[in-house]
Amino acid sequence: MNHNKTLQPSTHYRLGWFTLLALITYAWLAPLAMPDPYLQDLSATLQPPSHQHWLGTDALGRSVLARLAEGVRVSLSLALGSALMSAVLGASLGVLAAWRKGWLARALQSLADAVMAMPGLLWVLLLSALAPGEKWPLYLGLVLTAWVEFYRTTRASVGALLAGPQVQSSQLLGFGPAYIAQYHLWPAVRSTWLSLLAFAVCNGVLAVAAMGFVGIGLRPPGAELGVLMTEALPHSDDAPWLLATPVLALLACVLALQAVTRPRAPQP
């Protein structure tokens, strides 16, 4: 009997990618066939879902379907951009600390500890308060809080790899840092980095929505999931679909990002 197990994509993984791709397609392509998300029609306020407005209209007569697409696009763009920057910054500093060691590693570790001493959402809140309604404080705050995880994980993983026999053999044979990074470091840390990247995007989406909901992040008339929730809250009794749509979109986005971090499950 063969007891070996092969790794196959799990149902949650496939469903997560399908949901994520559907959200991305909706956010970037659907606006091409939709009305302007900022176009107001005061004669058609708070209309329920219909064949003309699939998700109804808000208090200013704007299409909820178009507003939601804009909100998902803005939220994902901010979260993905900050996550990629955090990954590059944190991974680069982690490799540098593991390779050079000494005072540089100690200084970077002290900086990481100082950032981690304060909750990440509080960093985003403080920076967002510098320029309420602007995107750059949100972006900067998300990068500041997310790079530490990449740094600490990379430093620990790369430090063990550099002390291993494979890397030392490559160094004795005269291979340079580029070869070692490509053939030894990257294959070993790739899956961990991709998982951290997905979690960073997930946390970024939640942080942007939280800041918009409390009025510190993006502000109306800008469309963002947290802003859409804030706009819909006063009308939750008369028009419950206004609040349900951004909440469900945020839930779907977060669950999809969490699902894609578990790509494979063992099968007999």
Score class of each variant (00 low, 15 high):
27 A>N: 03
46 L>P: 05
45 T>F: 00
76 L>N: 15
69 A>H: 06
40 Q>T: 08
124 V>H: 13
104 L>D: 05
27 A>M: 06
143 V>T: 05
133 G>T: 11
89 L>P: 04
18 F>N: 00
62 R>N: 06
24 I>L: 15
19 T>P: 02
46 L>T: 06
93 L>S: 06
140 L>P: 09
67 R>A: 03
61 G>Q: 04
106 R>P: 02
30 A>I: 12
36 D>V: 05
19 T>A: 15
27 A>E: 03
55 L>V: 07
66 A>D: 08
135 K>R: 14
148 V>I: 15
153 T>E: 05
134 E>I: 00
95 V>L: 12
148 V>R: 07
48 P>N: 10
70 E>Q: 13
23 L>G: 09
38 Y>A: 08
65 L>F: 13
78 L>Q: 08
35 P>D: 06
63 S>C: 15
76 L>K: 12
98 A>C: 08
74 V>L: 14
31 P>D: 10
36 D>L: 01
150 F>K: 07
85 M>R: 00
154 T>M: 12
27 A>G: 01
114 A>Y: 04
15 L>V: 12
39 L>E: 14
113 D>M: 02
49 P>D: 08
89 L>W: 06
105 A>T: 01
16 G>L: 01
114 A>T: 15
152 R>C: 01
74 V>W: 03
27 A>C: 01
88 V>N: 00
61 G>L: 01
127 L>H: 01
103 W>I: 07
113 D>R: 09
132 P>C: 04
106 R>L: 11
102 G>I: 07
76 L>T: 09
116 M>W: 08
154 T>I: 15
48 P>W: 05
106 R>D: 12
17 W>S: 09
94 G>N: 04
146 A>L: 03
139 Y>S: 08
141 G>A: 06
75 S>E: 12
60 L>M: 11
